[in-house]
Amino acid sequence: MTAATLTGITYYPVKGCAGTALTEAALTAGGLPHDRTWAIADEKGDPRWQGGDPALALITPERNQDGLTLRAPGRDPVRADDPDVHAWLTDFLGAPSTLVPSPDGNAGRLHLVSRATLDALNRRITARGAAPVPMDRFRPNLVVDGWTVAHTEDGAARLLVGDAELARTEDTIRCAVTLVDQRTGRREGPEPLRTLADYRRTAGGVAFGAYFEVRRAGRVSVGDAVVPGPDS
């Protein structure tokens, strides 16, 4: 496996909503701090997701020392601890919604996708006359560039990044969220699932990218080398 570079770090404070790009982060056993620690629940208490509510992509959570603030087009921002936050969400999404602690968070997982993997997919998509899809369709936590072979992350048992060591745990199985344009909050489709189904079917579904856990906590930064760990 050739060495590569970490080119993107993103966390998602509210599950299903827009992400926040970072230049550096301290990885812990729980993954990226504050990643998916909140969720938006429907009237039954089930978490909303972009597959059913694509407008979630337009809600931008912002964390700072004062807490969490939500922003959305055409709306005044609202703080997470504001009693009106639930009415704000309900009005924007057009259905009863409440901001709640996420029941499972990110389960300590980091979702990693390489640029080579996306480029290989987009070559197949454009070959059938469709438009390429951007990386944000897959909502990764970590983006790696520099590997010359697509899906290198599939076989990376261990990775050393900055001060941290990561261990691969499983494939990332893709769903209808990948059909949502993260900039417009509208479901597009049928790409990328149509093309992925041609060549990335597994027993669990259509796979693209991989999940990793943090084996050794440490700080990582955009620009850090990504190199094989002792078992790769």
Results as ranks from 00 to 15, higher is better:
Leu6Gly: 05
Ala80Gln: 11
Val78Asp: 07
Asp76Gly: 09
Asp76Phe: 11
Thr28Trp: 01
Pro103Met: 00
Ala21Thr: 13
Ile40Val: 15
Asp84Cys: 04
Ile40Leu: 15
Asn64Lys: 10
Lys44Phe: 14
Leu32Gly: 03
Arg79Ser: 04
Ala57Ser: 06
Asp104Lys: 08
Thr117Val: 01
Arg48Ile: 05
Thr7Gln: 04
Tyr12Met: 05
Leu6Arg: 04
Trp88Asn: 06
Gly8Ala: 15
Ala21Trp: 00
Asp76Ile: 09
Arg109Met: 09
Glu43Lys: 12
Thr90Arg: 07
Gly129Pro: 06
Gly8Tyr: 12
His34Gln: 11
Ala55Trp: 01
Ile40Phe: 14
Arg36Lys: 12
Gly74Leu: 09
Gly74Met: 02
Asp84Arg: 14
Val113Gly: 05
Arg109Ala: 12
His86Ser: 13
Thr23Asn: 13
Ala41Thr: 13
Glu24Ile: 06
Ser97Gly: 11
Val14Ala: 03
Ile40Ala: 09
Gly30Tyr: 13
Phe92Thr: 01
Thr90Leu: 10
Gln50Val: 11
Pro83Glu: 04
Ala116Tyr: 11
Ala25Phe: 14
Val78Lys: 03
Gln50Glu: 06
Gly31Leu: 07
Thr37Met: 09
Gly94Tyr: 09
Ala21Gly: 09
Gly105Gln: 04
Gly94Ala: 12
His111Gln: 06
Ala116Arg: 10
Thr5Tyr: 02
Gly8Asp: 14
Trp88Thr: 09
Thr23Tyr: 05
Pro33Ser: 10
Trp38Gly: 03
Thr23Leu: 10
Pro77Val: 06
Thr2His: 02
Ile59Leu: 07
Leu118Trp: 09
Tyr11Asn: 12
Ile40Met: 04
Val85Arg: 12
Pro101Val: 14
Ile40Thr: 04
Thr90Phe: 02
Ala55Tyr: 03
Ala21Ile: 07
Asp84His: 15
Trp49Phe: 12
Leu22Pro: 06
Ser102Ile: 02
Ile9Val: 15
Ala127Gly: 05
Phe92His: 05
Asp35Phe: 14
Ala80Pro: 00
Asn106Asp: 12
Pro103Asn: 02
Pro103Ala: 07
Val14Asp: 01
Arg128Ser: 04
Leu56Ile: 01
Thr60Glu: 10
Ala72Pro: 05
Ser102Arg: 01
Glu62Ser: 10
Tyr12Cys: 00
Ser102Ala: 07
Ser102Val: 01
Asn106Tyr: 06
Pro83Cys: 03
Ala41His: 14
Pro83Leu: 08
Lys15Ala: 13
Gly108Cys: 05
Gly30Ile: 02
Thr37Asp: 11
Thr90Ala: 13
Tyr12Phe: 15
Thr90Glu: 06
Thr98Ala: 13
Ala95Leu: 10
Thr117Asp: 02
Ile125Gln: 02
His111Met: 05
Pro54Gln: 00
Ala116Met: 07
Arg128Asp: 05
Tyr12Asp: 02
Gly74Lys: 01
Thr5Ala: 03
Thr5Cys: 07
Pro83Ser: 00
Thr98Ser: 12
Asp81Gln: 08
Gly105Asn: 13
Ala95Met: 13
